[in-house]
């Protein structure tokens, strides 16, 4: 049994743009039209003004995949997905805030 002992380094998922339209399509397993649709709905925002020069961040790639999963599994249409993703983001940020405030409160009270 070969052991993997090398250390794997990842990239932080942020707004840094790294990928072109073709790579996004490959990672998401969809045609360019699908990605264009997501861009047109404002679900992901690439840098660059036309598809051939578009550059996407890893965050956009993840968001696209999530959007496509929701579309496939829950049959949500594109505007519905846009709203869902915004609300999910907000929920996550509120959840983190609650966690942080709760920790602070704990420390104040003891």
């Amino acid at each position: 049994m070969a052991k993997q002992t090398e250390v794997v380094t990842g990239e932080i998922v942020d707004e840094t743009v790294r990928y072109g339209l073709k790579e996004v399509c490959e990672v998401c397993g969809v045609h360019a039209e699908c990605v264009v649709e997501l861009v047109e709905a404002g679900i992901i925002v690439p840098r660059g003004n036309q598809p051939s020069t578009w550059r996407f961040s890893v965050l956009s790639v993840m968001r696209s995949r999530k959007a496509l999963r929701l579309q496939r599994d829950l049959e949500i249409n594109i505007p519905g997905i846009a709203v869902t993703l915004d609300l999910l983001d907000e929920m996550e940020s509120l959840r983190d805030q609650v966690k942080s405030l709760r920790q602070h409160l704990d420390k104040l009270q003891r």
Binding site: K3, Q4, T5, E6, V7, V8, T9, G10, E11, I12, V13, D14, V58, M62, E92, D96, K99, S100
Partner: peptide
């Protein structure tokens, strides 16, 4: 099993893509 590097300064909810 994998040995993964946790970069300096990661924050809550941040995602690392391998």
């Amino acid at each position: 099993t994998l040995n993964v590097k946790i970069p300096k300064g990661v924050i809550q909810g941040q995602k690392i893509r391998l």
